[in-house]
Amino acid sequence: MLLIYCPYCEEERSELEFRGAGDAHIARPDNIADITDEEFEEYFFLRQNPKGLIFERWRHIHGCGRFFNAARDTVSDRFYTTYKAGEPKPDVAAILNGERDKGAAR
């Protein structure tokens, strides 16, 4: 079971309180009626599935109820950071370098 830091509650809580909500930073096209089938597939069906660093949404459903984003490693399941919805995607290089400096388990 994961331990997840909720950036709103500012507390690390068990995964039982959270619901995974898939890929983060997906913007619905403003012109949804005009886009091509390829663009719709891209928006609606295609998701990141990296072996390594992933940016994903979580919802603290049995806590504050709010959505937030997380950067996590899909091999070790370790969270690098969590951040509030609407905040920009953290810099990948900074995340990975930071982890290296700390000598974290990879």
């Binding site: 079971m1 995964e15 995974g20 994903e56 899909t74 091999v75 399941d77």
Partner: peptide
């Protein structure tokens, strides 16, 4: 499990 992972493990719950 509810999240993407390649860890070949999973949550006890």
């Amino acid at each position: 499990d509810q999240y993407n992972s390649y860890s070949q493990t999973g949550g006890l719950q």
